[in-house]
Design a protein around this nucleic acid. Structure first.
Lengths: 190, 190
DNA sequence: TACAAGATAGACAGATCGGTTTCCTTTGTC
DNA sequence: GACAAAGGAAACCGATCTGTCTATCTTGTA
C-alpha cells in the first residue's frame, strides 16, 4: 500500500499548484505530470477540473484550520491570550517564504459569483474560522463573542491582504494591536 | 471624432470583463467582440494581453480613487469626519449589485508573485489609497497619521474581503466602528 | 482628387485547454 | 494461476487560447 493514494497524490500536487499559480492558470496536464499520474487516473477520481478544485479547497480548509488551531494551542493555554495568539499564528504563516495570500480569497477572486460551488466552499471555510474564533471568545468570557469574532475575523482578512498585495509582513502584528484594544473593550471590568 | 477612441472602448470593456470574470478566464476574443473592435486594432494599441491588463488596472486605479475622493468630499467637509466617511464610501461600493471584490486584490490573486508587473500596479494602487488616507489623517491633526492610515487601510481591506467572500454587506460599517475607536485613541485630548 | 493612416473581417498559426478513449501493463485477491 | 480492477502512456477530440497576417474599406487631410 502506498504512503499516499493516487487521489491524495493528485490533491497534494493540486494544492501546491493552484495556490502558487492560480486555478485557471493551472492546467490538468501540469497537475498529472507533477503528480506522476495518468490523465485517466485523475478523471477516475474526479469528474472534472471543477470537482478537483472543490476537493482541493476542502482539503486546504481541513489542513489550514487544523494547523491554525494547533499553533494557537501551542502558543498559549489561556483563552483570552489565545484570541491574540491567532494573530501570531497568522503572522508566522504570512512570513513563510511561499506565502501568496489566502487560497480562499484567491479562489473567490477567480470564482466571483456568490453561487459558484467553489465560492461557496470559500465562504464556508471563512465561516468555520470565524466560529473557531467565536468559540475562543466564549471561552475567554468576552461580553459579545459574536461581535468580537467578526471584528477579529475582519482584522485577519485585512492583515492577509495587506501582507500579500502590498508585501507588508508586519500586517498581522499591526492587526493584533487593534485586536488587543477590542478585547480590552469587550471585557467587563470587575 | 468618436465619443470614445478605440483604445478607450477596449479598456472600458476590458475593465468590466476582467472585473466580473477574472483575468485568465477572459479571452481576447470576448473583449474584441464586446468592444466591437477587430483583433488587429487591439494589438495595434496593446502589445499583448498582459499590456492590456496593465492598462486596465491603471485605468481602474484612476477611476476608483477619483470616485472614492469625490464621494468622501461629498459626504463631509470636516477632516476628522472624512476619515470615517471613507468607510461609508466603501460601504456604498460594497452594496452595488455588481460588486465582486476589489479588482486589485483579485488581480493579485491571479498574479501572485510580488515582482509581476500587474501585481506591482496593484501594490502601487494600494499605496496611493493609503497615502490619501494619511493625508486625511494629517488634515484631521491625528497624532500618528502614518500609523493610523495603515490601520484604517487594513480595516478597509478586511471589509472588502469579508463582503465579497462571505457576502457580509455590513462589513464596512463594522470596520467603521473599529476605525472610530482608533481615531478617538489617536486624538490628543486638550 | 489622391493619398496615407487606421480600421475592418476573418483566415490562420501553433499551443494549450478540459476531457474521452484505446490499448496495454501492473497488481492485489481468490 | 486466473481474473478483475486500477493505472499508465498517449492518441485523439473539439474548443479556445494568444498572436499574426492578408486583403479590403473608410476617413481625414493635403
Amino acid at each position: 500500500m502506498p504512503a499516499l493514494s493516487k487521489r491524495e497524490q493528485i490533491v497534494t500536487v493540486a494544492l501546491e499548484l493552484f495556490y502558487q499559480n492560480g486555478f485557471h492558470a493551472t492546467g490538468i496536464d501540469r497537475i498529472i505530470k507533477e503528480a506522476g499520474v495518468s490523465k485517466k487516473t485523475l478523471y477516475n477520481h474526479f469528474k472534472s477540473k471543477d470537482e478537483l478544485v472543490l476537493a482541493t479547497l476542502r482539503k486546504r480548509d481541513e489542513l489550514f484550520r487544523n494547523k491554525l488551531m494547533r499553533k494557537v494551542e501551542r502558543l498559549s493555554d489561556v483563552p483570552k491570550e489565545r484570541l491574540l495568539s491567532v494573530f501570531d499564528a497568522i503572522s508566522e504563516w504570512i512570513n513563510e517564504k511561499n506565502f501568496v495570500g489566502c487560497m480562499f480569497i484567491n479562489a473567490s477572486a477567480e470564482y466571483s459569483e456568490a453561487d459558484n460551488p467553489s465560492h461557496i466552499v470559500c465562504a464556508e471555510h471563512k465561516r468555520l474560522v470565524r466560529e473557531y474564533i467565536r468559540d475562543l471568545a466564549v471561552q475567554a468570557e468576552m461580553d459579545k463573542p459574536e461581535e468580537l469574532s467578526q471584528q477579529i475575523n475582519l482584522l485577519i482578512e485585512g492583515a492577509i491582504v495587506v501582507a500579500h498585495v502590498s508585501g507588508n509582513k508586519n500586517a498581522a502584528t499591526q492587526a493584533k494591536e487593534i485586536a488587543a484594544m477590542l478585547i480590552n473593550k469587550n471585557t467587563t471590568k470587575k
